[in-house]
Amino acid sequence: MVAPAEAARVSPWQLYVAFSRMSLGGFGGVFPMVYRTLVERTRWLNHTDFAATWAFGQMLPGSVVNNVATMVGYRYAGARGAIAAVLGLIMWPVLVLLAVGTAYATVGDLAPVRRALTGMSAAAVGLSMATGIKMLRNLPRRWRHFAIAACVFIAIGLLRLPFLGVFIIAAPVSVWLIWRAR
């Protein structure tokens, strides 16, 4: 799945350009752009490859998109391809965010700007919550799935325990519960 490709070769530069376009075109999450570009436009991956790459990226630490860029870059152009893809993914958004940060440092203390940012924040919170609820709705209707989600929410959201400690305990328990219930 992620070995260097036997068939088509894609240059690091093409990877850099493609991932730059995906990242700059993706507002509020780049997943739709990544799918459209990799599967529908460039056809570097077919739907099955994409799903497998995405699923594998979810099992590794960090953002899935970052992992997908690393894997696709490596698959088509080795280490240089991986660097080119990740660089494409973050370089232009970081430049935009430098401008945003500078603007915030200049006008961020003005009352109307602060009020507007409060409104934006309230919306962004709603976005995170809605994503979590959507994942919850898509879980299999079994008590153990909801119990795991609830325990993680209580441990991290309410008790404010550190992520790593919770994960080290919750992940094996979760694997065991779901493994046993096959």
């Binding site: 994942m135 879980l139 991290i156 959201g157």
Partner: peptide, 15 residues
């Protein structure tokens, strides 16, 4: 098993 974990994590972040 990561899926229910992720759902709990995202809700905690939102909270």
């Amino acid at each position: 098993s990561l899926v229910p974990l992720s759902a709990g994590l995202l809700l905690a972040s939102g909270w």
